[in-house]
Amino acid sequence: MTAALPPAKPRLRLATVWLMGCSGCHMAFLDLDEALVSLADRYDIVHSPVLSDRKVFPEGVDVCLVEGAVSSVDNLAMARRLRLRSRLVVALGDCAVTGNVTALRNQHPDGLAGVLQRCWGQAVPPADSPLPPLLERVLPLHAVIRVDLVLPGCPPEPGCIGRLLASLG
C-alpha cells in the first residue's frame, strides 16, 4: 500500500491594483517581507504596480487585491476591467472599502467644482489637461463593481493580507 500524495494545487494568478490611494496598502503588502517568498509558492503575480512591469491588466486573474477608492474616470474603467477579468476581487484597505480619506473631498459643499477651485484655482480643468477627469464623487469599490471580500485597515495589517492570501491559496 502506497501513501497517495495530495494532488498538487494549481497555482493562482494574483494581481494587485492601485486606484486612488496613497500606496500604503501596497506598502503593507510588501511588508509581508519574507512571507512574500512563501506566497510565491502558491501565486504567480501577474500584475502589480510594485511587483511587476506589466502595464496591461491580464485576463484570467484568480485573485485581485484592489487598493484605493474610485475617484477618476480611469479608476472606474480599471475597476470594471479588473472585475471582468478576475475570479475574486478583494477591496484592500479603507479607501477601497469605505472611500476613507480619498472621499473626504465629497464633503465640499460645491462638489467637484469646489474641490478643483480650492486646489487649482479653477473649477474646470483645462481642456488639454493630461490628468484623467475626476468623478463628481469618490466611491468605495463596491459601489461600482461587485466585491467578493473586504480587508479593511489603513493600511491593513500585513499579517492579515498574508493570512487572507494563504487561506485562498
Binding site: 475597476a79 470594471r80 472585475r83 471582468l84 461600482v144 463593481i145 461587485r146
Partner: peptide, 11 residues
Amino acid sequence: ERLQPLAPWQS
C-alpha cells in the same frame, strides 16, 4: 419598466 439591467461588472 424603469429598471436597468445589471452591468456585467456588477454581477
